[in-house]
Lab assay of single mutants.
Amino acid sequence: MLDDRARMEAAKKEKVEQILAEFQLQEEDLKKVMRRMQKEMDRGLRLETHEEASVKMLPTYVRSTPEGSEVGDFLSLDLGGTNFRVMLVKVGEGEEGQWSVKTKHQMYSIPEDAMTGTAEMLFDYISECISDFLDKHQMKHKKLPLGFTFSFPVRHEDIDKGILLNWTKGFKASGAEGNNVVGLLRDAIKRRGDFEMDVVAMVNDTVATMISCYYEDHQCEVGMIVGTGCNACYMEEMQNVELVEGDEGRMCVNTEWGAFGDSGELDEFLLEYDRLVDESSANPGQQLYEKLIGGKYMGELVRLVLLRLVDENLLFHGEASEQLRTRGAFETRFVSQVESDTGDRKQIYNILSTLGLRPSTTDCDIVRRACESVSTRAAHMCSAGLAGVINRMRESRSEDVMRITVGVDGSVYKLHPSFKERFHASVRRLTPSCEITFIESEEGSGRGAALVSAVACKKACMLGQ
């Protein structure tokens, strides 16, 4: 009897593995994704193909990295998701002549009506938060230079001027797309009239992360975010950046690689679950690469896999709870928690219980395998993109072996128990001629924006502006 049951459990697990095998990517698959990513990057950089390229390769006008001589107080704003952060950054000489960066910050959550109302409502709310922060720190009387981390696709015309191309991540505030974001912020500050600010720089969160990590390690020339969304930036040779005049030196390019796949480059790798996630998203047909990796989508992918296993009578005796059938019910943090389970399955059992399920031991094991399959594919897909960037940098610099540091931020990278190990191992397999160091950014977005502002202020002083 026991043997029969054991055989049935083994057969069930084997069927589960057959279904989950769809998520496995072979090294040849990853090399294919990497080569296609490089081709799209090239198209994004070139003037004649930029418009139709899915990977936009947006110039950021960040050319210099901090040298350690900029000092002063800077205000930093960070808008990239449902939370908005205001930070005071003091850049100065530390002990023994070292450079020191001290920060104080406060988080504000953005109400739904500000995210989806008008641009005026959104930026009025942001300036209200700045006003509140300055009151708390008794700094209303000071006109501070301000660095703005704005983590949406922007076409820069200068370091302090950028046109919002399109909202992502659930934002829909009308009247912002096609307009200068810094102008919208300046107008809102003017409307309030109770404080003055000098907006000197606007950067993407990947750029802010790279600059913040450069402060720790001067070989950091790539910034990457794996959180709600997924994106990367890197220092490109100016001669390859056709959208900006000049051939000397390097400029940081914001790849906006989340949109890779929007022209069909990933079609052969998309599964039924991916198509369902895409169809029910706020932007169907867009940001397809990001939807395979980002935390906004990972939990939902797992939920759809679990429903398939229920329908195949391989999980929960073929019956799903009402909660499990509800879109968004299986949160991405559950994926991390399930994979963090120590082996007694308590954590998995508790999560499934909150979803109205009474799982068996085998159910718990199957749910864990589903989570591992989805998150491992995410790590491997992400590795193909980064390997594409790094191999490109090595080739354009004609280096036999390139040493490089990548600064990384984002909740999936930082909080998932195995993502970074799987990701690092896969990147290294795909970049055999590179020695890569990964560092995690601390308060990256805010500190990085302030350091970019410090560079901009120093330049302005040198130019006598």
Rank of each mutant, 00 (worst) to 15 (best):
D409I: 05
P417S: 12
E256V: 12
Y61Q: 00
L45R: 08
S281D: 04
R7G: 11
E17C: 14
E248H: 02
T103W: 05
T376N: 08
S360I: 05
C364W: 02
G183H: 03
I130S: 02
D262G: 08
D205L: 06
E248F: 06
E28G: 10
E177A: 09
F123L: 05
S263F: 07
G264S: 13
A208C: 03
V71F: 03
F150A: 15
I163P: 14
F438W: 08
G72Q: 00
F195L: 04
T332R: 12
T431R: 06
N179D: 08
K142S: 08
Y61A: 03
F269L: 02
Y349K: 02
R155C: 15
A188Q: 02
V55D: 01
N180D: 06
A370G: 02
Y289G: 15
G183K: 05
K32F: 06
V455H: 13
S373H: 04
L75M: 02
T60S: 12
A456F: 10
D78C: 09
G464F: 13
S353P: 01
H317I: 14
N283G: 11
D205W: 04
S127W: 05
E245W: 03
L75K: 00
V406N: 00
G410P: 10
V207M: 10
A460Q: 08
T362A: 02
V374Y: 02
C461V: 15
V33N: 06
H317M: 15
A449M: 08
E245C: 03
L164S: 14
A450T: 13
L185S: 01
L271T: 01
M34Y: 09
S353I: 02
G68Q: 05
S263R: 08
V427D: 00
V277T: 13
A232P: 04
A460S: 10
G328M: 02
S280W: 08
H50E: 08
A329V: 12
G92L: 08
D42F: 09
R5Q: 13
R422K: 13
H156D: 07
Y61P: 01
V86P: 02
V55A: 01
G178K: 15
A21T: 15
S445M: 13
V367C: 05
V241D: 00
D365C: 02
D363Q: 00
T209C: 03
M235K: 01
C233L: 00
Q18C: 11
S131G: 08
D73Q: 04
